[in-house]
């Protein structure tokens, strides 16, 4: 059978197979492997491949992972809290910007604005995190700047080495991820709906509340998920901003694969974290759908 006789579907499938095989080999296989390994035990440089739930038992019983103790939360709840806070801040701060670009900016200049907004995102993440450390540090830009201006005498200590600094840095890093989905959703809104609403007697503000905002919910949902999920895996920011002290789950995972040398535990931690993120995302989606349905 010549290539010509193959159906267009078969040709598409043939075309899709190289990227698919690549992803199968270097994405699916690794994900399967990590699930497998999480049921094994590290023995020196090798693995004991007898099936065990010990890694999961450790995660769910030892205080440092989930349960926490009187002084400290477990590392997973802290990480979830940080990600949730970053998400909330990012999305709330991003919405007006997306609204501005979609509704106020002249159509011919929209792509310029989008371009400007995306530029910082494409500059080295490591450098950006590092810059925030420099900005917020004890002898950093803010402190020395304010001191030079005579606003403060002593450096502000609350700026670095706490979760706030992690949150600020991440909120900056993921801003673009929040703006774009909301912008896309706002762009899709038929402008005549807004005119109809005002024609029917709503003010501009109530039009926003009753028409624009509900119609942009899919964008908000997209923004929430696309910020919440990756932030949980960010270990560079905490490592640079928190120093040797407080750590988030991504750092714990990373440590298991390097210094800790307990890959199975690290694998199990990754999986538990992913599952929790996944469950939270699904619950969020579910509640959101219920809320949307309840309205209509």
């Amino acid at each position: 059978m010549s290539i010509f006789d193959r159906s267009p579907q078969a040709r598409t499938a043939a075309l899709l197979s190289p990227p698919f095989l690549y992803s199968l080999l270097l994405l699916a296989l690794p994900l399967v492997a990590i699930v497998l390994i999480s049921f094994w035990t590290q023995t020196g440089l090798d693995f004991d491949t007898t099936f065990t739930l010990a890694n999961y038992r450790a995660i769910f019983t030892q205080p440092q992972y989930i349960l926490g103790n009187a002084q400290n939360w477990g590392v997973i709840p802290v990480s979830l809290f940080v990600s949730a806070t970053v998400t909330a801040i990012t999305v709330v701060l991003a919405y007006p910007v997306a609204y501005f670009v979609s509704f106020v900016v002249d159509p011919s200049r929209k792509s310029l604005w989008l371009f400007l907004i995306t530029i910082p995102f494409w500059s080295s993440y490591l450098i950006r995190v590092f810059l925030w450390k420099v900005i917020l540090g004890f002898n950093g830009v803010i402190n020395t700047g304010l001191q030079a201006l005579g606003v403060i005498r002593e450096p502000l200590e609350f700026l670095l080495y706490n979760l706030a600094s992690v949150i600020i840095t991440m909120a900056h890093a993921y801003a673009v991820f929040a703006i774009l989905p909301i912008y896309v959703a706002l762009e899709k809104i038929d402008r005549s709906l807004l005119e109809a609403s005002q024609d029917l007697g709503e003010s501009r503000f109530s039009t926003f509340l009753r028409v624009t905002l509900p119609l942009s919910v899919p964008g908000i949902v997209g923004a929430v998920l696309i910020v919440f999920i990756p932030t949980i895996g960010d270990y560079v920011t905490p490592q640079l901003m928190l120093g040797a002290g407080g750590r988030l789950v991504a750092n714990t995972i990373q440590t298991q694969f390097f210094k800790g040398n307990d890959a199975p535990l690290g694998a199990a931690l990754s999986i538990v974290t992913m599952l929790m993120v996944g469950i939270i995302s699904l619950v969020f989606l579910f509640l959101n759908r219920r809320w949307l349905r309840g309205r209509s």
């Binding site: 698919f20 994405l27 492997a33 990590i34 696309i226 990756p230 895996g233």
Partner: peptide
């Protein structure tokens, strides 16, 4: 196609760790 796009929403550390294992 959805599967190939998955890394967009996977935490990078998960990709890193699992690739390392493989």
């Amino acid at each position: 196609l959805g599967f190939i796009m998955l890394p967009l929403v996977l935490p990078e550390i998960v990709i890193a760790v699992s690739l390392l294992v493989v």
